[in-house]
Design a protein around this nucleic acid. Structure first.
Lengths: 197, 197
DNA sequence: CGAACAATTGAATCCTTTCAAAGGGAGTGG
DNA sequence: CCACTCCCTTTGAAAGGATTCAATTGTTCG
């Protein structure tokens, strides 16, 4: 399913989806030919919860297994698969993450925040996969692939992360990366927290 | 209630809210002192639907009347006020709007998209209020107040919009503004659509 | 009327983009 | 198995745009 389209923009929303395995991206194509990636979705994430018609397309970034849920009709009958509150909450959380990401202004902040988010969403320790291309990252955080590439290499040069090929990395200095990202998102890391000077 | 805090970051989420009258903003304060406005909410919009603890603060932009809804406990019992699917959907729609807004890259695109969104959310025709300060706009779309001011004045100079004081405007050339914004959001305007050459 | 704050405008700097090109990895075909 | 090609990534240099610094104007409120 790699690179495959799961649904297209403007399609009626008959289903909603849940990632079982792999990574999915949602895309919006602007009239100037520019592509905006509104989100990346990992196992456990849900997507495709628009009303009426999809406002974005969804594509598989890697080989992916997707759970497709039937929707109830608009009467909100609370049937077994009627977009459970749970799913909506998770979708909202995904959207919020993206919004926070976009709040960063400089290239360095955005890239640092993006890598941190990836590391936190997967396993944080050890090697973290970077399944999407540089172009994907650029279209997601609103930069060019050149700036993305430059910035990632710069972070590696400063030993904040280590690149393991072009599609995997390791966080070497979480604290330094968080500082660069501007906001540590410490409050979301349930349980443990840091103390600053 | 103007400028008042409705709830703070990290507060437990015991309620969720609905705007009856006025305008509300949700804010996130970064460690570098920088402020990010994650959303503006108009009558009919809902906000404060985080899980567990609020990840952002909410403040009144104007005098505002807010409906405060009690939450059910986490058992999801489906009680009368248990974050109805409806509310979550609207919150998700709000978040999505913000994400699309941030997808714009240049100052002109962002300001044009922001003004358009405002005009569409209120009445589109006639004078449209701009209740928030330039600083608010800047912190929302990720620019400085200087660039925001410059760009708005530039749009007015080109007769795309007309400024009526600093806190109200009128859309003079909707088509031109949409073209600047990059993506017309035409598909969301239910029913009518445009044909391009 | 004066003070304080918000908005506008100008000039210089810095950063990102654009333009251009070289290096590297994966897959194909010989 | 190796060579070739294609595409993605990385890097360099120049151009454009947003930010920063600085100052003026306008508005609101006491």
């Amino acid at each position: 399913l790699k690179g495959d389209v799961i649904y297209n923009e403007s399609e009626p929303t008959r289903f909603w989806y849940e990632v079982v395995e792999g990574v999915v991206r949602t895309c919006r194509f602007h009239s100037d030919g520019h592509r905006q990636l509104t989100g990346f979705f990992y196992p456990g994430d849900v997507f495709g919860l628009d009303d009426g018609r999809h406002s974005e397309a969804a594509e598989a970034v890697t080989e992916a297994t997707i759970l497709r849920h039937q929707r109830q009709s608009a009467n909100g009958g609370g049937g077994p698969e009627a977009c459970p509150e749970n799913a909506l909450r998770r979708a909202l959380a995904s959207a919020r993450r993206s919004i926070f990401l976009f709040g960063r202004r400089t290239a360095e902040e955005r890239v640092a925040a993006f890598l941190l988010m990836l590391a936190e969403r997967t396993d944080s320790l050890g090697s973290c996969a970077l399944p999407m291309s540089r172009t994907d990252i650029a279209d997601h955080i609103g930069l060019t692939i050149h700036t993305v590439s430059r910035t990632i290499c710069e972070l590696a040069r400063r030993r904040l992360v280590a690149l393991e090929g072009a599609h995997a990395f390791r966080v070497l200095d979480p604290a330094g990366l968080r500082e660069l990202a501007g906001d540590p998102d410490v409050e979301e890391a349930g349980g443990d927290f840091l103390i600053f000077g």
